[in-house]
Amino acid sequence: MIKLFSLKQQKKDGEATPKVGNQKKASAAQLRITKDINELNLPKTCNTEFPDPDDLLSFKLIICPDEGFYRGGRFVFSFKVGPNYPHEPPKVKCETPVYHPNIDLDGNVCLNILREDWKPVLTINSIVYGLQYLFLEPNPEDPLNKEAAEVLQNNRRVFEMNVLKAMRGGCVGSTFFERCLK
């Protein structure tokens, strides 16, 4: 063991030490998100937008699926990364109104790694792939939008048409969706 207090002497007092800039070091969370962002390996259907390049903690992800029910659509997600990243997952919301079994009309997204299955080893990239997968394989088993899930389960053709109707800008049932085709 080291003998820490062979230095059984007075510690330098607060004022006596030179004042250095407060917190010139980046926090561990900041270093981690820098790495995550620099290593974003986006599929060609995805893109990011950083309104403020200095703020890597809040950005938007735009997904334009090129296959599946949602082909041709353009969906915007907002990411907010908190100071407890990666202990806690980022908060992700869908900003584009979408007719989808796992996304509700307020933009809440039901993706396991965004809540109960988040692990610190996961990265922003994992979430991007998770979200992209939601558009390729909407999952009616875990619905957030129950009506959409029921339609998908009972009649894929009707579901497909509803998705198209919503993306073109129109009403599905009593809900109006704004146009989100590219």
Partner: peptide, 15 residues
């Protein structure tokens, strides 16, 4: 001064 500043980040096109 405790605020992050991105000097250059080549991999994300918008940044």
């Amino acid at each position: 001064n405790g605020k992050n500043r991105t000097l250059y980040l080549p991999t994300v096109s918008s940044i």
